[in-house]
Design a protein around this nucleic acid. Structure first.
Lengths: 137, 137
DNA sequence: GTAAACCCTACTAAATTGATAGGATTAATA
DNA sequence: TATTAATCCTATCAATTTAGTAGGGTTTAC
């Protein structure tokens, strides 16, 4: 299941991409328009900022803005920040590899083989999708 | 993340597929050979039996066996039984559809569009993979 | 009739999720 | 310079899910 965090984060990014002009977008505006609890959204955008996806401006008339063009923001990056590893098991994760303690030989493990296929097909989708695609132009 | 339940279930099914002969396979044997807590595995195989994937024989010399040939057991079915819906959000689930309460128009929702693509690509893998593929011939 | 197997229900500890609370800090502007 | 409006940060919490464990009940081969 996709976490609310990721769902809200994607919606917020889409919202920002659609409203991009000169001034940053405020959390309160996004929260209201997308029906997201504001305090929760605050922490999510903070995560995205720390990861380098968003930039922010503090104080009055502050808010968040994209650090890159929507067409340059790939879902692989966003999903890894919000949801964590794309692989369903650590032993097939490209970025967070970990050996299974119960598995003597990965190459003979049926789960391993299947999960590599799932990972690759999901990765293909995320690599070929940018925030521009999500925001619908 | 893939749950241990699903992981253990897949390993057990593979084990059974590989050992298929005339007599059913016992939980204790699978548990020992695959390093799975026996009581936990019992409940998993019970689930698979209730779902019609496995059959069982009670009493001495009892155990579990496949109800169909490995080549007929698709990952779509197994995964739905063990892990639940394949879709990452209910609003794109084929078998467990549910509307999002925060989403006024699904067709305009960026998350919805993305998750449909992910669902379809994952489904493609599961539809094209059988237990025979997992057990490695 | 007894041992060996599956069957079933209930419980539990730990982790994760989806928040909420409360303020600290920063910047625009009147 | 004081006020206001925004982000930033830490801590806490209730509910749910996960990964088991416990303790038998039931069935069948021998």
């Amino acid at each position: 299941m996709l976490s609310k965090k990721t769902k809200y984060g994607l919606k917020a990014l889409t919202y920002i991409a659609r409203s991009e002009g000169d001034s940053p977008i405020q959390v309160s505006e996004i929260a209201k328009n997308e029906s997201i609890p504001q305090k929760f959204l605050e922490s999510i955008l903070l995560t995205l900022r720390k990861a380098g996806v968003l930039g922010s401006k503090k104080g009055k008339h502050g808010g968040y803005y994209l650090r890159n063009a929507p067409s340059e923001i790939k879902m692989t990056d966003v999903m890894r920040v919000l949801e964590g590893p794309i692989a369903m098991v650590p032993c097939v994760s490209l970025n967070y590899y970990e050996k299974c303690d119960d598995c003597p030989d990965e190459l003979k493990c049926s789960v391993h083989k299947l999960m590599i296929e799932v990972r690759d097909s999901t990765l293909k989708v995320f690599r070929n999708t940018t925030l521009q695609d999500l925001s619908g132009t």
